[in-house]
């Protein structure tokens, strides 16, 4: 592992220095992002790992491969249980020039469903994933290898549909080789956009995902995602982001959602608060009858944005876990700092 890290560090250093000295790298753009995360539990049973850590260090390389195709490689070293793992997050060939009104990618990528599943964790408007996302997808996002196609309809309003088919040997974030599924992972997303009062805009997505693993466990996900933004000059004045998902896992049923509003309060500071909930509605007592359970989390946060390239976020997680007649609560404080080097990050909506 140390040798791999040395190789990773040397590759990054040589690439960055090549760009600094203007060597011809065929238009290759490089971007580095580092996400440090410090979690400290304030109560017994909290999820805090009580340490300062580099949660993720990511190297992104992208450029046209030729006149028709583009390529992207995203290699990340990230901490799992205190141990750094180096892995390929994305490696795909794509094009938006081959088929009119379309783009596709072939390779390994984060599946094109949902909102936060598609966005790199360091770009999320909050620090850690909501409980339902960890249960249904992964701590960051579900990624796999396959083919994804997106089509933009020729309509007087924005309507884009994505469909993907991936191997499905594993799901979520799994380092094993997995095994051939009975039904590979397949998914679809339809997204539209509309203006909001006060010079804002909003995006609404409808999502579906299905897979049946080798053991016959059938997983179906259906969800809605909503993002609304109001910008004033260089400031994101208001943000509202929400997702709601339902999972069918064989005969079990689970659902969850989050709602995250955020507002700019001046001088690079933003306040936000996430409310999320998760429950398994198929749990029953041994003798019958619904087993009450649920996880409610409230996460107020304070964000400071020094520039587009450096952010710091302080969050306080208040977690309530109900199992039957018992409810336990825990608190955790998190401090996250993210920085970007290299190519200008894209201002996705």
């Amino acid at each position: 592992m140390r040798a791999i890290f040395l190789l990773y560090a040397m590759t990054t250093a040589s690439l960055v220095s090549s760009l600094a000295f203007g060597e011809d790298l065929g238009g290759l753009k490089t971007s580095v992002s580092v996400d440090t995360n410090s979690q400290f539990g304030l109560s017994k049973g909290s999820e805090g790992n009580d340490r300062i850590s580099v949660r993720e260090a990511e190297l992104l390389l992208y450029s046209p491969a030729d006149h028709m195709f583009d390529g992207q490689l995203n290699v990340a070293a990230h901490s799992e249980g205190g141990v750094m793992h180096l892995e390929v997050h994305e490696a795909y060939l794509g094009s938006s020039k081959l088929i009119p009104r379309s783009r596709f990618r072939l390779g390994h990528f984060f599946l094109g469903v949902g909102r936060i599943n598609q966005i790199h964790r360091h770009d999320w408007p909050f620090t850690t994933a909501p409980r339902y996302h960890r249960e249904f997808f992964a701590y960051e996002g579900a990624q796999d290898t396959g083919l994804e196609y997106t089509y933009l309809f020729p309509l007087p309003f924005f309507l884009e549909v994505t469909a993907g088919l991936t191997n499905g040997y594993v799901f979520g974030h799994d380092h094993s080789t997995g095994s051939k599924p009975k039904t590979p992972t397949h998914y679809a997303r339809a997204v539209t956009y509309f203006s909001m009062p006060g010079e804002g805009g909003a995006q609404l997505g409808l999502n579906y995902l299905g897979r049946t693993d080798n053991a016959g466990t059938k997983k179906t996900l259906a969800g809605l995602d909503f993002t609304a933004k109001w910008r004033e000059a260089q400031v994101l004045k208001y943000l509202i982001q929400a997702e709601a998902w339902h999972q069918w896992l064989n005969s079990t049923r689970q659902w969850g959602f989050y709602l995250f509003p955020q507002a700019h309060i001046g001088d690079g500071f933003y306040v936000g608060a996430r409310l999320d909930y998760y429950t398994d509605t198929s749990l029953t007592y041994g003798g019958g009858g619904a087993y009450p359970n649920g996880n409610l989390t409230i996460v107020p946060s304070l964000l400071y944005r020094s520039s587009e390239f450096v952010t710091a976020r302080l969050s306080l997680t208040q977690d309530f876990e109900r199992q039957g007649t018992t409810t336990q609560s825990s608190q955790m404080i998190e401090f996250q700092a993210v920085f970007f080097l290299g190519a200008h990050p894209a201002h996705d909506f």
Partner: peptide, 19 residues
């Protein structure tokens, strides 16, 4: 009215450019 440095890749822009 915007600051052109700090604009998002709004879906409506994508639709207009597609045509």
């Amino acid at each position: 009215t915007e600051n052109p440095h700090y604009v998002d890749a709004v879906p409506e822009f994508i639709r207009l450019v597609s045509n």
